[in-house]
Amino acid sequence: MAQADGGRVQALLRSEDKVLRRWVEAAETPLRGRLTTGELERTCSDLLAVLGEAVAGGGLDVTSAAYAGARGFLAELSRDWARRGFSPSETASAVFALKDALFAAADEDGEGGESGGDLATVLESSRWVDALGLVTFESFARAREQVISEQAEQLLELTTPVVKLWEGVVAVPLIGTLDSARTQIVMEKLLQTLVDTGSEHAIIDITGVPAVDTEVAQHLLKTVVAARLMGAECTISGIRPQIAQTIVMLGIEFGDITTKSTLADALLHAMRGTGVEVVRRRTGSR
């Protein structure tokens, strides 16, 4: 069986214009106009050219060295589409549309009596396109994963700033759900800032934390105790009414840790701790 030489597929690809036109037609439908016809045509014709070379050099074995260019092109294509928000099935069906084009081309050739639209040709080209589809899908998934991990990293960096509020008072406004990994980063960053700035007061503001469960509370307590071990006082602020209810219902004990409802209260508390008193200037001429 002529599985590896790809003679039939090569013959089909030779009628490039016909295949290309059908391919673009078939691929356009699932993309629902998210890509212009011109752009899709350009992509398809580039891909077809690369594939033509690959088949000539390496037959139908997509893992062979001759396919390096084609694999690279597919990987680049799916990475690009993944970043542009195309769904996996949209990306894969664009490649699988080549199958329709090849079948149609084979059918036509069969009618013309040239090479014959026989079952072997259909099977061969089907297997080949499936393999190409798998390559596409793999790189699509890899690209997606990469995007997700990059975003997670950015989120971690974005949401853990330690700000100086006053001489000797630093604060971390926590935003988003707290998990172990984030708490670890927040904790280390806060403690390091305490050392670097010589601050004796730290405020952890949890206004932006959507929910507090026993695990989150545990993380907060650990941070406060660690700050104490280093010789700094730590206040928790921004406890919303619902969260206060949850904490009481869960039976979480904050012990002798100072908690305030707003960041302003916590700042005032910390400033008093450093010996600063805030007074309002008397206005008017009396």
């Binding site: 280390e188 403690l191 305490l194 050392v195 010789g231």
Partner: peptide, 19 residues
């Protein structure tokens, strides 16, 4: 006890020693 490093403080907390 003075000058405890952050890493040391975290370790002690994880060990359950709040001193």
């Amino acid at each position: 006890v003075v000058g405890m490093r952050p890493a040391v403080a975290i370790t002690l907390v994880e060990l359950g020693l709040s001193l």
